[in-house]
Computed example of a mutant assay.
Amino acid sequence: MVFKEGTFKGKPPEHFDGPHPAWLEAAVADALSIAGDVDASDITVTCKGTRIVLSGSVGSAEEAGRAVAIAASVKEVGEVDNRLSWL
């Protein structure tokens, strides 16, 4: 079998320092979804480097604080930007 150097069409792949944003976003979203004390159905998780941005809405300020704590506990998360609102 002959292995050829990989080629691509269009823009070259982006280089990320640290964890890949999609992996980190998924890890935080998974942690929020399995937490029993946070309704994560209206929370959007985005990643900028190792900074996680939580946006959307939750039921209370305490739930927002818990969501931030859960996101911060995920390995590789550097900081959490809380943009959550509550009713």
Rank of each mutant, 00 (worst) to 15 (best):
W86V: 11
R83I: 08
S55F: 00
A40Q: 01
A72Y: 08
G49M: 08
G18A: 08
G78S: 12
A29Y: 01
G78R: 07
T50V: 00
M1V: 09
T46Y: 01
A26H: 11
V45D: 07
T44G: 02
H15T: 15
D17F: 05
E5C: 00
G18K: 04
N82W: 06
V2G: 04
G56L: 06
S73P: 06
L54H: 01
H15N: 07
I70G: 01
V53K: 04
A40D: 14
R51Q: 15
D81K: 05
E5G: 01
D30E: 12
R51E: 15
L32G: 03
E63M: 11
G6I: 09
L32T: 05
D30Y: 11
A64S: 15
A69N: 08
V53T: 14
L32S: 03
K75N: 11
S57T: 14
S60Y: 01
I43G: 06
G78H: 07
P21H: 09
T46W: 04
L54V: 03
A29V: 03
G59E: 14
G49N: 12
A26I: 00
K4M: 13
S33I: 06
A29M: 05
K75V: 12
A22K: 09
R66W: 07
E62M: 13
A72F: 09
E5T: 14
S33L: 11
V68K: 10
N82L: 08
L24D: 09
A64E: 09
R83T: 10
A69V: 05
S57D: 11
A69I: 02
T46I: 12
E14M: 05
V28R: 03
A22R: 08
A26E: 11
L32F: 04
S41I: 00
T7N: 04
E14P: 00
R66Q: 13
K9E: 15
V77P: 02
D39G: 05
K48Q: 13
C47Q: 10
G36E: 15
S33N: 15
G59A: 15
I52E: 06
D17C: 01
G78P: 09
G78D: 13
I52Q: 05
A35G: 02
G78Q: 10
K4R: 13
G59T: 10
P12I: 04
M1I: 07
H20Y: 14
W23T: 07
A29R: 09
S60V: 07
A61Y: 12
G49S: 10
E76K: 12
A29D: 14
V53C: 02
L87R: 08
L54C: 06
V28T: 07
V38G: 03
G59Y: 02
H15S: 13
I43W: 05
L87S: 10
G65W: 07
G56C: 05
I70P: 03
A26V: 01
K9M: 10
A69Q: 12
A22S: 11
E62W: 03
W23V: 14
I34L: 11
V58W: 02
